[in-house]
Protein backbone atom coordinates (compact mmCIF):
# COMPACT_ATOMS: atom_id res chain seq x y z
CA UNK A 1 0.00 0.00 0.00
CA UNK A 2 1.16 3.46 -0.67
CA UNK A 3 0.37 6.81 0.83
CA UNK A 4 1.15 10.22 -0.47
CA UNK A 5 2.57 12.21 2.38
CA UNK A 6 2.65 15.96 2.33
CA UNK A 7 6.03 17.58 3.07
CA UNK A 8 4.34 20.10 5.35
CA UNK A 9 4.19 18.01 8.48
CA UNK A 10 1.46 16.53 10.73
CA UNK A 11 -0.84 19.53 10.50
CA UNK A 12 -1.03 19.17 6.75
CA UNK A 13 -1.68 15.45 7.11
CA UNK A 14 -4.66 16.24 9.30
CA UNK A 15 -6.03 18.59 6.67
CA UNK A 16 -5.63 15.93 4.03
CA UNK A 17 -7.53 13.46 6.18
CA UNK A 18 -10.39 15.90 6.72
CA UNK A 19 -10.75 16.62 3.05
CA UNK A 20 -10.84 12.94 2.19
CA UNK A 21 -13.31 12.17 4.94
CA UNK A 22 -15.79 14.57 3.41
CA UNK A 23 -15.39 12.81 0.09
CA UNK A 24 -15.88 9.32 1.43
CA UNK A 25 -19.69 9.44 1.25
CA UNK A 26 -22.20 7.79 3.49
CA UNK A 27 -23.01 4.14 3.75
CA UNK A 28 -26.37 2.50 4.14
CA UNK A 29 -27.42 2.00 7.72
CA UNK A 30 -31.21 2.31 7.73
CA UNK A 31 -33.42 -0.46 6.40
CA UNK A 32 -35.19 0.74 3.28
CA UNK A 33 -38.86 -0.19 3.39
CA UNK A 34 -38.08 -2.82 5.96
CA UNK A 35 -40.85 -4.41 7.93
CA UNK A 36 -38.67 -4.62 11.05
CA UNK A 37 -40.06 -8.08 11.67
CA UNK A 38 -37.85 -10.90 12.83
CA UNK A 39 -36.05 -12.84 10.16
CA UNK A 40 -36.89 -16.51 9.93
CA UNK A 41 -33.62 -17.40 11.60
CA UNK A 42 -34.27 -15.51 14.84
CA UNK A 43 -32.17 -12.45 14.13
CA UNK A 44 -34.08 -9.17 14.05
CA UNK A 45 -33.59 -6.65 11.29
CA UNK A 46 -34.52 -3.92 13.73
CA UNK A 47 -31.39 -4.80 15.67
CA UNK A 48 -29.09 -4.60 12.66
CA UNK A 49 -27.24 -1.57 14.00
CA UNK A 50 -26.64 -3.39 17.27
CA UNK A 51 -25.34 -6.45 15.46
CA UNK A 52 -23.07 -4.31 13.31
CA UNK A 53 -21.64 -2.65 16.37
CA UNK A 54 -20.65 -6.05 17.75
CA UNK A 55 -18.37 -6.63 14.79
CA UNK A 56 -17.19 -3.31 13.39
CA UNK A 57 -14.10 -1.54 14.68
CA UNK A 58 -14.55 1.74 16.51
CA UNK A 59 -14.26 4.98 14.58
CA UNK A 60 -10.98 5.66 16.36
CA UNK A 61 -9.64 2.40 14.94
CA UNK A 62 -10.62 3.41 11.41
CA UNK A 63 -8.92 6.78 11.19
CA UNK A 64 -6.41 5.35 8.72
CA UNK A 65 -9.23 4.77 6.24
CA UNK A 66 -9.55 8.53 5.80
CA UNK A 67 -6.28 8.53 3.89
CA UNK A 68 -6.53 8.06 0.13
CA UNK A 69 -4.45 4.89 -0.05
CA UNK A 70 -3.36 3.63 -3.42
CA UNK A 71 -3.12 -0.13 -3.63
CA UNK A 72 -0.30 -0.53 -6.13
CA UNK A 73 3.32 0.53 -5.98
CA UNK A 74 3.03 1.85 -9.50
CA UNK A 75 0.11 4.15 -8.71
CA UNK A 76 1.92 5.46 -5.65
CA UNK A 77 5.11 6.19 -7.53
CA UNK A 78 3.25 7.98 -10.30
CA UNK A 79 1.31 10.08 -7.80
CA UNK A 80 4.47 10.85 -5.86
CA UNK A 81 6.17 12.03 -9.03
CA UNK A 82 3.20 14.07 -10.20
CA UNK A 83 2.57 15.75 -6.86
CA UNK A 84 6.21 16.07 -5.83
CA UNK A 85 5.68 14.46 -2.45
CA UNK A 86 7.47 11.59 -0.76
CA UNK A 87 5.84 8.20 -0.82
CA UNK A 88 4.95 6.06 2.18
CA UNK A 89 5.06 2.41 1.13
CA UNK A 90 3.42 -0.13 3.45
CA UNK A 91 4.52 -3.67 2.70
CA UNK A 92 2.97 -6.64 4.47
CA UNK A 93 2.59 -10.32 3.81
CA UNK A 94 -0.95 -11.63 3.68
CA UNK A 95 -4.03 -9.65 2.90
CA UNK A 96 -2.89 -6.03 2.70
CA UNK A 97 -5.91 -4.50 4.39
CA UNK A 98 -6.35 -7.27 6.91
CA UNK A 99 -4.50 -8.26 10.02
CA UNK A 100 -2.83 -11.33 8.59
Amino acid sequence: MTLLRTPLGPAALALLALALCAACGGEATEPSGASQESADNGLELAKLATYRALVLPKDSERAWEQIAWQISYEDGLRASSAEQKPLLLWVMNGHPLGCT
Binding site: A28, S32, N41, G42, L48
Partner: peptide
Protein backbone atom coordinates in the same frame (compact mmCIF):
# COMPACT_ATOMS: atom_id res chain seq x y z
CA UNK B 1 -23.90 -18.38 10.82
CA UNK B 2 -27.30 -16.77 10.74
CA UNK B 3 -27.78 -13.83 8.42
CA UNK B 4 -30.01 -10.77 8.50
CA UNK B 5 -29.93 -7.58 6.48
CA UNK B 6 -31.55 -5.50 3.80
CA UNK B 7 -30.87 -3.98 0.42
CA UNK B 8 -32.17 -1.82 -2.36
CA UNK B 9 -31.68 -2.63 -6.02
CA UNK B 10 -32.29 -0.55 -9.11
CA UNK B 11 -33.61 -2.76 -11.88
CA UNK B 12 -32.93 -0.15 -14.58
CA UNK B 13 -29.22 0.22 -13.87
CA UNK B 14 -28.73 -3.24 -12.45
CA UNK B 15 -26.96 -1.76 -9.46
CA UNK B 16 -27.44 -1.94 -5.73
CA UNK B 17 -28.02 1.41 -4.08
CA UNK B 18 -27.95 -0.17 -0.62
CA UNK B 19 -26.92 -3.54 0.74
CA UNK B 20 -25.81 -4.56 4.18
CA UNK B 21 -26.12 -7.70 6.20
CA UNK B 22 -24.60 -9.30 9.24
CA UNK B 23 -23.77 -12.92 9.90
CA UNK B 24 -23.54 -14.07 13.49
Amino acid sequence: SKIVGHGRFDLASGRFTALEFVAL
